[in-house]
Design a protein around this nucleic acid. Sequence first.
DNA 1: GAATTCGTTGAATCTGTATTCAATATACAG
DNA 2: CTGTATATTGAATACAGATTCAACGAATTC
Lengths: 191, 191
Amino acid sequence: MTRKEQKEERRKAILMTALTLFVEKGYYDTKITDIAAAVPMSTGLMFHYFESKEELLVEVVKMGAEGTRALSGSADIPVPPDVFLTGFLTQMFAYAKEQPWVFNMFVLMSQVRRNGMPEDARRIASAVDSIDFTAQLIARGQQDGIFRDGDPVLMARCFWASVQGIMEEMAMDRNMAAPDAGWIVAMLRKG
Amino acid sequence: MTRKEQKEERRKAILMTALTLFVEKGYYDTKITDIAAAVPMSTGLMFHYFESKEELLVEVVKMGAEGTRALSGSADIPVPPDVFLTGFLTQMFAYAKEQPWVFNMFVLMSQVRRNGMPEDARRIASAVDSIDFTAQLIARGQQDGIFRDGDPVLMARCFWASVQGIMEEMAMDRNMAAPDAGWIVAMLRKG
DNA sequence: GAATTCGTTGAATCTGTATTCAATATACAG
DNA sequence: CTGTATATTGAATACAGATTCAACGAATTC
């Protein structure tokens, strides 16, 4: 089994390296040889692990899709919606410093959803959906009178789009301080 | 002079077509032949107008850099900062529907600033800076007691990053309704 | 209306990079 | 140990797509 374990580790190493480089330099500017050199391993060997550069991206995105299930549970959360969202974002921004992995994944997933990436990957990334969940949460907050009026789905989309914008800004400049999660949740708050 | 005018118009047509396609499909997925076909003109002729695909991108970005000077004046604006920002965003979102050109330009400029685009273009896009101006505006709002405490520069960066995130979301789904500008300015408002 | 210049074309190159492959080394089974 | 399977390499190939170019057409000049 050592053999199989080795392979699995190697595979993960490639995925992680690819994730980092894709976010740092962008998918198209990241050459297969760059990833191979960074792992490190020979160029050719990459293709024993992944059929193509595109499949590699797809696998990274799949990995991200699994991890992001956190945000797609039921809206029956035992804390007020604003508290939940603030806490979630605070943790997420903290990761930006401590756990670049999670952070990079968030940024990559968002980027892939947008244009300019292979269609396969886009489809998978788009399937991950935190909008519905967040919209429910927002609707609840509206009933409780803590969130402003407005279409919850639109608000959820704008909320996450903002977060994404900020995460990308942080990805671009790793020295940037994380914002206060409260600032963003304030978008939703009443009055 | 008809000849010269023709050329200038053709040039603009290429720039506009390129802008649209770059935003719709992404820079790398947009082939020179795609742009040529859309203008329309032959592939070869493209190179009488622009030396290379990269130079074409750079020229589009330069065009954007000129237009974006709007946001880099002095902070001596005769209206309260929150009103100014709200008005500005409202207009900007309105453009998203009426004037796809301005809208696309905003999205492209933002994307180019981020990773994954040729360095030349990035430098030019990065030179356009609305952060300083906005930070001044925010500082003024803080003095007036209408904006929350916090580093004005960080707040300005987050503000524009949010706007960018939302604009990209809108670019991705042209049917999406524009958010209320007030939502975003609320990020800055004091509790 | 002949000469010259500029606009235009699309097929032929050239280039960068993903992908393949023949060869070699290393692990594992019997 | 021997044979078989798997890991690894880096140079050779394939290919997509940017770029060039030789030829043609249309405008402008004198």
